[in-house]
Nucleic acid binder design. Structure first.
Length: 114
RNA sequence: CAGGCUGGCCGGACGGUCGCGGUUCCGCGCAAGCGGGAUCGAGGAAAGUCCGCACUCCACAGAGCACGGUGCCGGGGAAAUCCCGGGGCGGAGCAAUCUGCCGGAUAGGGCCACAGAAAACAAACAGCCCGUUAUGGGUCAUGGUGAAAAGGUGGUGUAAGAGACCACCGGCGCGCGCAGCAAUGUGCGCGGCCUGGUAACCCCCGCCGGGAGCAAGGUCAAGCAGGGACAAGAAGCUGCUCGUUUCGUUUGAGUCCCGGGUCGACUGCCCAGAGAGAUGACCGUCCAGGCGCGCCAGCGCUGGACAGAAUGCGGCUUAUAGACCGGCCUGAGGC
RNA sequence: CGGGGCGUGGCUCAGCCCGGUAGAGCGCACGGUUCGGGUCCGUGAGGCCCCCGGUUCAAAUCCGGGCGCCCCGA
């Protein structure tokens, strides 16, 4: 995922989390918010409760990799935040991928045709 | 062979498919950009931020005090609460080896609980001795406490005793010789016969230290609106004094209150580089490890320690599965 | 990046500067008071003073290192 499709600033994260709708899973939480003027933008939040820098980096990379194949099939005009939960570090990549896919389906974003 | 000590070194490897960040090249496009190629892309500790530098600003960084750090010797080093080697005094271990401390206790002050007669210019509770008769004097060998009781043993001496005196031993100081670059070690002589511990308590002595930190700082861009009260000093490195510089004293520095504007870009900054931050996913083979099966060869399953650069560098400290190489010690056995 | 503070019974804190006895309130247990409970009164238990080294005769206290938590400035 290129940098310009990411959410970076903390104001963006705050806006999505207050205005958006959230869908939760034991491994991960998805928050989606409609934003008409932009293209699809995704941010990953890995909080301090996950552990040190190694654990947070790993969680972020796993979630990015899980989202990557889904992004191309989705409509633009959404801002999405993924929040990692602690059990994510113990899970395998395929579990995480399935969890993220399920959350996108529940949020009604784009991948129904599969 | 078993157990242990110690120094060094590595800290998964190779390949494929997809993906990420930087630089650069090519093609297409007016442009935003799109497609493709090349190349580089986390650690020994990147960590804790405990020291020291570089660098930047504050005045080319000033003086004194305060405050803080540091403290055996030699060498290395830009420097350091750094490294290497050595010395002294301790501690652990059979040993190899590991480990703590290092100026001054006659410059001064403080403290040393409980116990004990007494805890530091010695004193005198019991005791002993002498004189007197219920008190004066001499004395600390004897006593028990304590972490520690003002040298030890033997003798001379005495009323009783005592370094009061003598011999040897121990310790301290001074002088000289020898070894060593030195710390220091060692030998001889002399001296007073002899001086508790604690400076990781205050302190004294020598040496060192101006302050802040890359959110330092620099360049550019954008934007705005002043008003009121107090006011003679204010600010420039923390505390004080001095010195000095700048701004200011009714054309008003500064402080407080109300109100308004901005919170961007580039640079500093890197042969990894920056922006809240790029190294990941899957598959295969192998190396090392664990478990199970097997007489062996081997087979199957499992599964990678601590941990992620944010201006750079030199150290220290802390975390760390396992692998490799070298040296040494102890024990047992063989030749 | 820099600076500061805290860690002591179950809880909230004293004690640390200037080293020798670890204490207060609440809570807890037992007994009394009451017909019973609360209140009240009395008695009592409970702490390797965050961890590891060191200085000292002796360390919660002094020194060094580590761990955890909190706060402040840019």
């Amino acid at each position: 995922m290129k940098r310009r499709f990411r959410l970076t600033r903390s104001i963006d994260f705050k806006r999505v989390r207050t205005e958006g709708k959230s869908y939760s899973h034991p491994l991960v939480v998805l928050v989606a918010s409609a934003a008409e003027q932009t293209e699809l933008r995704v941010g990953v939040s890995t909080g301090y409760a996950l552990g040190g820098a190694v654990q947070r980096n790993r969680a972020r990379r796993l979630l990015r990799e899980a989202v990557r194949p889904l992004v191309e099939q989705m409509p633009s005009g959404w801002e999405i935040v993924l929040i990692a939960r602690k059990p994510l570090l113990g899970a395998g990549f395929l579990e995480i991928k399935a969890a993220v896919q399920g959350l996108f389906l529940r949020a009604g974003l784009g991948i129904q045709e599969q």
